[in-house]
Amino acid sequence: MMHPQWQTVNSGIAKLTGALDRDKVPLLWKTLQQWQPETEQFEVSLQNVERIDSAGMVMLIHLIEHAKKRNCHIMLSFVPDQLRTLFQLSNVDELMAQHIKIPMG
């Protein structure tokens, strides 16, 4: 699966890059809906996400649900403060806590 903002590192890790906003999300989501996870746990790195808005947050929630239907648990790593704030403002921070990877060290 190829999309400039979604790069699969290996069978258990992918990176999202750039802006996850209302302008970029619709095309990216069309690609992600085709994704079939091959592992029981999958990490999505947000380290290279430059900007995220509510559309990006909703897309990530849908991605988690999409994976869950395929018996895969997604963990988000390098979650930007901007996204954590959106989770809190949307009252989904407790729900999302089980999907946020705590950095080691």
Rank of each mutant, 00 (worst) to 15 (best):
M1I: 11
M1K: 08
M2W: 13
M2T: 15
M2K: 14
H3Q: 02
H3G: 02
H3N: 07
H3P: 01
P4T: 03
Q5D: 06
W6K: 06
Q7M: 13
Q7G: 10
Q7D: 12
N10K: 10
S11D: 15
A14S: 13
K15N: 14
K15C: 13
L16M: 08
L16G: 02
L16D: 03
T17G: 11
D21R: 06
R22C: 12
D23N: 15
K24D: 11
K24N: 15
V25F: 01
P26G: 09
P26M: 08
L27I: 12
L27V: 13
L27D: 15
L28C: 09
K30G: 11
K30D: 14
T31F: 08
T31N: 13
T31I: 06
L32C: 04
L32Y: 02
Q34I: 11
Q34C: 12
W35G: 04
W35C: 07
Q36I: 09
Q36H: 11
Q36S: 09
T39D: 07
E40K: 08
F42Y: 15
E43I: 15
V44E: 00
V44I: 15
S45K: 01
N48I: 01
N48T: 10
V49Q: 05
E50S: 14
E50V: 09
R51H: 15
S54Y: 14
A55S: 11
A55H: 09
A55T: 07
A55R: 08
G56F: 00
G56T: 01
M57L: 13
M57P: 05
L60V: 02
I61C: 14
I61G: 05
L63G: 02
L63S: 00
I64Y: 02
E65C: 03
H66L: 09
A67V: 03
A67P: 06
K68P: 02
K68Q: 12
K69F: 07
K69A: 14
R70F: 04
R70E: 00
N71L: 10
N71I: 03
C72Y: 00
H73I: 01
I74F: 03
M75I: 01
S77Q: 09
S77C: 13
S77T: 10
F78R: 11
F78D: 14
V79I: 11
V79E: 08
P80N: 10
P80S: 10
P80I: 08
P80H: 09
P80C: 10
D81A: 13
L83C: 06
R84G: 14
L86N: 06
L86G: 04
L86M: 05
L86Q: 04
L86Y: 04
F87A: 12
Q88N: 14
Q88R: 15
L89M: 11
L89G: 04
V92N: 01
D93L: 04
E94T: 10
E94C: 03
E94D: 10
E94A: 09
L95G: 05
L95I: 14
A97K: 13
Q98M: 03
Q98K: 06
Q98T: 01
Q98F: 03
H99R: 01
H99S: 04
K101R: 12
K101D: 00
I102R: 12
M104Y: 08
M104E: 12
G105C: 05
G105T: 10
